[in-house]
């Protein structure tokens, strides 16, 4: 085998390995249409969410919680969808993750470009799907889950801006959220601002996450609601979990997925938040 053809074969092999690793053999949705200059590109954190939701233990938990006898179709909400890779994965693999196809998916993002890109990602993933499809609603432009009807969410997913970095200045949001008048491309300042929204989390990287956590009890379905929130080591995850358990009777928070172990510290982790009323 000539060296060049060996290179091609091994590159293809590597790609297949990545593809399998990232999703427990469930395909990763395509985001090739997304402009990553202004929308967060799928990264280790996104893939950790895919791996965790499709892991044997989590899909077991979700299948048990949302079995056919548990009632009407579950509504999955992802806040801050970015490229839409996580929501699309959930929509396309509803049967593997929840054990049922009649799942509804809904997203929000503060970045209007992300809203359009993510909708496209979910639609493409569902069209490519060989299994009967779940039902995608929309991605709405908004601040966290502020526009969602209370107690209507069964499964909540959040990959927050978790980096300890100064929050962007929101003063120009309206202007930065649309194409400049008469132009067909965003400016460099605009792109920088939109990407900052996707990662900068203020003090301890927790300012946005704390605002979101405060809304969770009002957002989740009282009986079967469950939330998945990604945290990084600098977010002080043990403290965050302690605080959630103090929300009231039955509230639980456990780490159900992690990646990037460094000197005994998990760099990233997924915390499952739910209420055990039994």
């Amino acid at each position: 085998m000539s060296s060049i053809s060996y290179w091609i074969v091994s590159t293809a092999h590597f790609r297949i390995l990545c593809w399998l690793r990232h999703s427990n053999m469930l395909p990763t949705p395509s985001t090739s249409h997304v402009c990553f200059d202004r929308v967060y590109e799928p990264a280790e954190d996104s893939f950790l969410l895919l791996d965790t939701l499709s892991s044997a233990s989590e899909s077991g938990f979700l299948k048990d919680r949302f079995n056919a006898e548990s009632g009407a179709p579950p509504l999955v909400l992802e806040v801050g969808v970015g490229s839409g890779v996580v929501l699309a994965f959930t929509a396309a693999n509803a049967k593997s993750i929840f054990g049922r196809q009649d799942v509804l998916t809904l997203g929000t993002d503060i970045n209007s470009f992300a809203c359009k890109a993510a909708s496209q990602t979910v639609r493409t993933a569902l069209n490519d799907n060989v299994n009967p499809a779940s039902t995608f609603l929309d991605v709405v432009n908004g601040d966290l889950a502020s526009s969602i009807r209370p107690h209507s969410i069964d499964v909540f997913i959040f990959n927050p801006p978790y980096v300890p970095a100064e929050l962007p200045n929101f003063t120009h949001h309206d202007r930065y959220s649309v194409l400049p008048p008469g132009k067909d491309a965003t400016s460099f300042e605009q792109d920088s601002y939109l990407l900052e929204l996707s990662y900068a989390g203020g003090e301890d990287g927790m300012v946005v996450t704390n605002r979101m956590l405060n809304q969770i009890p009002e957002l989740l379905d009282v009986g079967r609601g469950v939330a998945y929130v990604l945290l990084c080591a600098q977010n002080k995850p043990e403290l965050v979990k302690e605080q959630i358990r103090e929300w009231g009777v039955g509230w639980e928070a456990e780490t159900v997925g992690s990646s990037g172990k460094q000197a005994g510290w998990e760099k990233l982790q997924i915390v499952r938040i739910w209420r055990n009323l039994k």
Binding site: S112, C115, D138, V140, N141, H173, D174
Partner: peptide, 11 residues
């Protein structure tokens, strides 16, 4: 706009 609802509120 273009099928996307905007729920962002003025400050």
């Amino acid at each position: 706009m273009e099928g996307v609802a905007n729920f962002l509120l003025p400050g």
